[in-house]
Design a binder for these strands. Structure first.
Lengths: 178, 178
DNA sequence: TAGTACATGTAACAGGTTACATGATTGA
DNA sequence: TCAATCATGTAACCTGTTACATGTACTA
């Protein structure tokens, strides 16, 4: 159910096309959700059927018409209700940790390379979130009520990447001691 | 594909029944994977078909026979190959962060309660991982090669919970300033 | 001239969730 | 006596992934 709500959350601010939503999940809000465009198009059709979003078709030439999706009052009521509903903590699932768990099956250097590569990937993500931070939340003391929430959410993404990087360093250091 | 490999990883040490695997994913290795028993039974049947695991039926009375699953040489070869294959970083998905993103839709106290509740849940998880740490890895300096990998994997789970707790504290402090 | 961005979509398949079903034993 | 643990499983459904399809405009 949460993909629906994640989409509604992005529509609170402003209408989006499916294409735009896919880009946002892939980028600036990647620290809390992700989905492919196929999933999003399917979900948007369902949301429209439920009356939670409204669609405005903007004709274009040479490429498919844009379909601007806005949240309806009903959609906003549903989203608000969901936000106020207690939920569980998200279960973890991570390929790299499964690999680490049985890391002794492969040469040490193979694991170290993969760890180093992941550390770089997390550093890239962190750098990107830092850019988002500077662009949208430059003066933390002067944020609107809404942006305060968004900034704190982004903080989770920043911390998460920092923590991954630190763990990679911890493991690499443990390996180098030998 | 990774559920298959997560199961194989647990079978490297010792044979397990589907029931036991479900309990482990739910408990001591919950910091890297999780799955319901239905998923596991379905996957084990597939793994047997592929020749990656072998099944021994242990008759019981009054309850269904136990089916002990062991990893085969073929399964071990497949697992080793997969471990050596580079992969992507895991995408994030978290309901609570979606809720935070649009937290201004509900009363401030509602969000603070939910945050506090999540902080407790993460504290419980952390306490559990600390128990696992004390039970299985009491003397870090004297671990076997295999246990060293497992300990470092558990470290990821511990750091992850600590980081969540710290973020919850950060957000709650930001709210209390007002 | 090759690749990326724009913008939508269908179809098939794989992975994950929820509900239901059985039935003995153990502990509070 | 009620709930939890043990131990398996089927069926229906929902969510997520991968491949394919179309076709323009802009940039390197």
């Amino acid at each position: 159910m949460a993909l629906a709500h994640a989409i509604l959350a992005l529509l609170v601010d402003s209408p989006h096309t499916g294409y735009e939503l896919a880009k946002e999940f892939d980028g600036s809000v990647g620290y809390f959700w992700n989905a492919t465009h196929q999933q999003i198009y399917r979900e948007l059709a369902k949301l429209e059927g439920q009356g939670w979003v409204r669609v405005e078709v903007i004709p274009q030439e040479g490429r498919p018409d844009r379909k601007r999706h806005s949240i309806t009052d009903l959609g906003l009521a549903e989203l608000s209700h969901w936000v106020a509903t207690p939920g569980d903590i998200a279960p973890m699932k991570d390929d790299l940790l499964v690999k680490m768990f049985v890391g002794n099956l492969v040469p040490r250097s193979t694991m170290m390379q993969e760890l180093t590569r992941h550390q770089h990937l997390h550093e890239e993500r962190l750098a990107f979130y830092r850019q988002v931070e500077q662009k949208f939340f430059p003066e933390v003391a002067q944020l609107s009520q809404q942006d305060r929430f968004r900034y704190l959410t982004l903080r989770r993404g920043i911390r998460y990447e920092q923590d991954w990087i630190a763990w990679c360093a911890e493991v690499l250091a443990a390996f180098e001691e030998e």
